[in-house]
């Protein structure tokens, strides 16, 4: 009888230790996910924290990135120039709910420039989707915030947070993607600007078109041996559109 009791006691202790270990592991996973900006309470907020510094060489024309029109957090009608201006603009598409966005809002409270030399414009969805009073609590008064669902659609923003970096004089998009922290934003902006300078310099010096293509590919992060240069299958017509809609 004593042996049975001791054995059962040992089994209970072992099981308890196993459960505690599993709970601790679960907690560490959740904490790591949170640091990466993933909130499991928001199943629709899928983050793809990648940034593509792909120079889209387009002149300022009808195809240039559109200016941002909408309302301020006080309800005024507002329009912000993006292309055809002397400076570069970082459009930060944020929401008031995603956990990564909240961190970005909080950092802007202490530094409304986010440490950037370029113009920063925060774009949130319109009043039908985002509460202006909630956003007023989050936003620093010195930060330009525009509520515009139309801008989200025009820029085809897939997730929040999402950033689009626009060169004003040329209307080129220097890079875009989802980035969870201002530190990373500053880093990729410096990289995008440097890459852009390389391309601009090559074009100004009349580089051979074939070499120019190489330079542009390198600026886009596509180096020799890059997987995108060797597709394993032919693209399926219409698949991309379906994915965008989903």
């Amino acid at each position: 009888m004593t042996v049975v009791l001791v054995t059962m006691g040992l089994a209970i202790v072992l099981l308890a230790a196993l459960v505690i270990g599993l709970l601790r592991s679960h907690g560490e996973i959740l904490r790591a996910l949170h640091q990466l900006g993933v909130n499991l309470d928001e199943p629709h907020d899928t983050h793809d924290h990648s940034f593509t510094n792909t120079p889209k060489l387009r002149p300022v024309s009808d195809s240039a990135p559109p200016d941002i029109a909408g309302t301020t957090l006080k309800g005024s009608a507002v329009k912000v120039g993006v292309a055809g201006v002397e400076h570069r603009t970082l459009l930060a598409f944020l929401s008031s709910t995603c956990s990564a966005c909240l961190n970005l809002w909080n950092e802007l409270k202490s530094d409304p420039t986010a440490g950037l030399n370029d113009r920063l414009v925060v774009v949130v969805k319109g009043p039908e989707a985002e509460s202006p009073s909630r956003l007023r609590d989050l936003a620093h008064p010195e930060v330009t915030v525009v509520q515009s669902t139309e801008a989200w659609e025009e820029y085809q923003v897939p997730v929040s947070p999402y950033f689009v970096y626009v060169d004003g004089p040329t209307g080129d998009i220097l890079g875009e993607g989802s980035i969870p922290t201002w530190d990373q934003v500053r880093s990729v902006i410096v990289q995008a600007a440097a890459d852009r300078a390389v391309v601009t310099q090559a074009m100004a010096s009349g580089v051979d078109p074939e070499l120019r293509a190489d330079i542009e590919l390198r600026a886009a992060g596509i180096t020799p041996g890059h997987p995108s240069l060797y597709p394993t299958s032919m693209p399926i017509e219409g698949l991309e559109d379906e994915e965008d809609e989903s």
Binding site: A64, D67, S76, A77, V78, K79, G81, G84, V85
Partner: peptide, 23 residues
């Protein structure tokens, strides 16, 4: 791109900033 509020309507050129707000 036009903006409009409070009975004021204007076509804002590309690259310009604009706002119509209450005094």
């Amino acid at each position: 791109m036009r903006i409009r509020a409070d009975g004021i309507d204007v076509d804002v050129p590309r690259g310009w900033d604009a706002e119509i707000y209450r005094q």
